[in-house]
Amino acid sequence: MRTEQEHEYVEYVQSRLSSLRRTAYLVLGDGHRADDAVQDALTVLYRRWGRLTDVASMDAYVHTMVVRACLTYQRRSWSRVLLRGDPPDSVVESGSGRVDDRLVIREALGRLPVRQRMTVILRYLCDLPVSDVAQVLGCSEGTVKSRSHHGLRALRAVLGERAPASVPATIAAHLRGQA
């Protein structure tokens, strides 16, 4: 790769890295595995960088790579092995209970089937439009809408009437049926 292309690659990755890590963390629920999935996707992206001049939406392309890397990590049997004990008994105080709320949301999302969970995460937590989510997941826009509907309904059932305060406004409105 030429120095100019490497510079473009580094700029692109630096500007998108936090978003890609967030997406991977939301899909996998583990920071270390999320970092590994992003690293794998970015390694493949680096090798392909010089040939990607005709890609219509680089962000959608890279998000697809990251989501697919996450799916690969979920399929691996060793990924189900927990190398740590139970979490510590002490709860980190945040002043507003947001840590507890995040745990409730993480648990509720964990109860969804993988495809529904990824659709809800990409659609509402990453705030991607239906068309982009369909492109990332490799399905139709109707499938994205259906999975979103069923995923939100399942979240409503798990969370009951109360959506924690830390739920982003876009998903909270949908959970309450106001959107």
Rank of each mutant, 00 (worst) to 15 (best):
S18N: 14
L17G: 01
S18M: 10
D40F: 05
D40Q: 08
Q39I: 01
V38S: 02
L17W: 09
L26W: 11
L17N: 05
A37I: 02
D30C: 08
D35N: 13
Q14K: 15
R22L: 15
T23F: 08
D35I: 01
S18R: 11
Q39L: 11
D40A: 06
L28H: 07
D35Y: 10
Q14A: 14
V38T: 08
A37V: 01
L26Y: 15
A34R: 00
R33N: 04
L17D: 03
D36N: 00
L17R: 12
H32E: 11
R22C: 12
V27G: 01
L20W: 02
D35S: 11
V38I: 00
D40H: 08
R22S: 15
Q14S: 14
R33Q: 09
G29H: 05
L42Y: 00
S15L: 06
T43Q: 11
D36Q: 07
G31C: 07
T43Y: 10
L42W: 02
V38C: 03
R33D: 11
T43M: 09
R16P: 01
L28G: 03
R22D: 14
R33H: 12
D30T: 04
S18A: 12
L42F: 04
Y25W: 09
T43H: 09
G31A: 10
G31T: 05
A24L: 09
G29T: 06
S15E: 12
Y25I: 12
L26I: 11
S18Q: 10
L42D: 00
L17F: 13
T43A: 07
A24T: 07
A41Y: 02
T43I: 12
D30Q: 10
S19D: 14
H32K: 12
S18Y: 10
Q39A: 13
L26M: 11
S15K: 14
L20F: 06
H32W: 08
L42T: 08
L17A: 06
G31D: 07
A41I: 01
S18F: 13
V27F: 07
G29Y: 05
L42V: 09
G29D: 06
D35L: 11
A41W: 00
A41K: 02
L17M: 07
G29S: 07
R21I: 13
D30F: 05
S15I: 03
L28M: 05
Q14N: 15
L17Y: 13
S19V: 13
A37D: 02
V38N: 02
R21K: 14
D36G: 05
Q14C: 14
D30V: 04
R16Y: 02
R33E: 09
V27Y: 03
R16A: 02
D30N: 13
L26E: 12
R21S: 13
R16K: 12
S15C: 00
G31F: 04
V27H: 02
L28T: 04
T23Q: 12
L20D: 01
V27D: 03
G31M: 00
G29Q: 07
A41G: 05
L42K: 02
S19I: 13
T23S: 07
L42S: 03
R16C: 01
D36P: 05
A24C: 08
L17C: 06
R33L: 14
L42M: 08
A24P: 08
Y25V: 11
L20Y: 09
D36K: 04
L26A: 09
R21Y: 14
